[in-house]
């Protein structure tokens, strides 16, 4: 029993008193979502791999730094981290820097979201890279060293190539997560996809929220599925016959 008037055409309607259409808002939002997620993923993958490696090194201080990073960034909710980067940090740094962050930094919402999301996801990537390295038989590292490779060379040529192959499935999940987590950036005013959904279903077109929310869900679904397929392709292409993920 409902008097809800369905209207799937809502998205094709023109924004009142303007030359824009609602679907253009959604496309622009999707663009920011993808740009934010991809940029943050670059940070997450590079920094995460570094931290993950640090945690497996024999040096106590280095592995401590890795552990401290992971526990700090993994144990604070993402929404709180973004809030801190955006609202708290500019108040703590010297006024000149704070004012620059608030007024002159290029694209303040986007930049903050990319770094916040990237640093958060790096902690999770680090754990997966560490898992990948620790999964390898200990003999591999010893064999590398016995061949006369330095520790760095052993990581570069022996351990990491296999470790990354092993953790492609969990990294795929993390890569998909970063697209979905980017929605949190609406709390700092980034005009990404979920922001646009809230904007349209707010006072602009409040009468058909269910349709807009459904379409936005489908957009997220298709982005995540595309990422999933691309990663599956990479996994297939990087397979080493006879090794762990090369089996089947």
């Amino acid at each position: 029993m409902s008097t809800y008037q369905w209207d799937w055409g809502i998205i094709l309607q023109q924004v009142p008193e303007s030359e824009e259409f609602y679907y253009q808002w959604l496309i622009s939002g999707l663009g920011w979502t993808i740009a934010t997620a991809l940029s943050a993923w670059v940070i997450a993958l590079l920094l995460g791999s570094l931290i993950g490696v640090l945690r497996t090194l024999p040096s106590r201080p280095l592995s401590f730094i890795g552990t401290a990073y992971v526990e700090l960034f993994r144990n604070i909710p993402l929404i709180v981290q973004l809030f801190i980067w955006f609202f708290v940090v500019p108040e703590l740094v010297p006024t000149v820097v704070g004012d620059w962050m608030k007024r002159d930094m290029p694209l303040p919402e986007f930049t903050t979201a990319v770094f916040g999301l990237g640093l958060f996801t790096a902690a999770r990537v680090a754990e997966q890279v560490r898992t990948g390295i620790l999964t390898l038989p200990r003999g591999q590292k010893n064999a590398g060293l016995a061949l006369g490779l330095t520790l760095g060379q052993t990581y570069r040529h022996v351990l990491l190539p296999m470790a990354f192959r092993i953790v492609i499935p969990p990294l795929t999940s993390e890569f998909m997560n970063i697209f979905k987590n980017s929605a949190v950036a609406l709390v700092i005013g980034l005009t990404e996809l979920t922001f646009q959904m809230k904007q349209i279903t707010g006072d602009y077109a409040p009468s058909n929220p269910i349709e807009v929310m459904t379409l936005v869900s489908l957009l997220y679904l298709s982005v995540a599925l595309s990422v999933n397929r691309i990663m599956a392709f990479i996994e297939k292409k990087s397979r080493v016959p006879g090794y762990i993920s090369g089996g089947k």
Partner: peptide, 14 residues
Amino acid sequence: VTTTGTTSDQLIRK
């Protein structure tokens, strides 16, 4: 500043 979900930005834009 406009609160998400309100049309204040349009008032200015107009």
